[in-house]
Design a protein around this nucleic acid. Sequence first.
RNA 1: GUGGGUGUAGCUCAGUUGGUUAGAGCACCUGGUUGUGGUCCAGGAUGUCGCGGGUUCAAAUCCCGUCACUCACCCCA
Length: 444
Amino acid sequence: MRMAKVRNISGFPEWLPEQKIVEEALIGRVRAVYESFGFAPIETPAVELYSTLAAKGGEEKEIYALKRAAAGPGESDEKDDSLALHFDLTVPLARYVAQNLNDLVFPFKRYQLQKVWRGERPQKGRFREFYQLDIDIIARDVLPLAADAEVLTVLDRALEALALGLHGIRVNNRKILQGLYESFGLEPAARAAAIATIDKLDKIGESGVRDVFRAADEIDDAMADRILETTTLRAAPTEALASLRAMGIANALFDEGVNELARVIELVPEDARKRLVVDLSLARGLDYYTGTIFEAFLDGQPEFGTVASGGRYDDLASQFSNKKLPGVGASIGLTRLMDLAFQKKLVETGRKSPARALIAIFDENERAACNAVADEVRAHGVACEVALKKAKLGKQMQYADAKGIEYVLFVNAETNTVEAKELASGEQKEIEDLAAWCRGVLHS
RNA sequence: GUGGGUGUAGCUCAGUUGGUUAGAGCACCUGGUUGUGGUCCAGGAUGUCGCGGGUUCAAAUCCCGUCACUCACCCCA
């Protein structure tokens, strides 16, 4: 029989055990931070109705539709009735909140650690299946700015907990940009275009921005100068706020945005505030954000781009509910972070097994005794495996070493003693007190 | 969707102007006397040279197509 061709499917990453162990550990750290702020877990299905996803501006070509290989007789094959994989966790959240309005307590604080799927062309740091680690706070009617500050704080703490290197968070407020360009006399369409273009400042530079403006007729060179003069502002919070207020822009929306930004920054604890950078060129595309917006990056890894992002939206679920549900949220792109971390060796991959100890088998007749010792070790919290067959001891130790298992235990059924060999040092000695030995392993 | 690059062993890659049975390193397996690993030594297994077609006495090598991977644009975590 011919073997099926094995290959990885582009954009669908999969890790080796030692990498997945690291990923699980990092997910655990983020979860701990999220829960420490009182966010509650939920999980929504991988699929939603296609119509649900399409309603919230998901780009059609990026949505993976789901259908059975063949439709049954009389069954519809229409796209709008079919299922599709969610491309983010915000749209499912909107549906979830709208559906459970009466059962949820508001402000609703939830976290959601799930994979999402996007039908994109993969490239460096871009995947078609990836983890998003989301938090959001949703309110009925009015959501205080303290929520924006809390989400920023939680995001900062989560990135700190990941310990993948120094990070920074660029922050801005949509109202500032809108107000600024309104005060310049730009029409709404031109404002949107200007915002979308200025968002690329980092990538294409000032001259690139000018080129784009020149290609579109709505913005002349003088206007381009004004836009670039103001929007290139990037500075530490205190300094940036001073500059914004010194601009002398007479526009209500602009003032509102600046005041919101100032309030949010003020509410972020000092340690996190040090990592905030006010960046007026941050625009976050053209999606549903309406106020505070932010993007996190790792210092020294600009080519990998944004590792987390989020912001405030005025109305989460307008298409699912007539109640007004403002929210603010953040999402960590874990898969991109993992890819970055492995490539740049920001984390060490270690053991290929959760086991810390292997019990060697000298003789199949002693297996029961070995299993009993293994259970005792496990009861003391130390993951432990028993060799599955009697082999040369050298083989058994090689096996342990290859898996990164640190100790090999030798059970002497006759004398009822156990010796432990630490592979790294080669040191071997009898275990006097199994519980104490296990505590020692757990603390090492 | 658009444009560039690349497809040879599990991995990283050699393969000379087309020329016999396609190679190396790493990894893997066995052994170096039956209860103690990592080194060393000896031996071993491994490929429709991405796929299809064409040119040729002869194709991994040249041509065309196709698929996949990859990088960039778009967009985004």
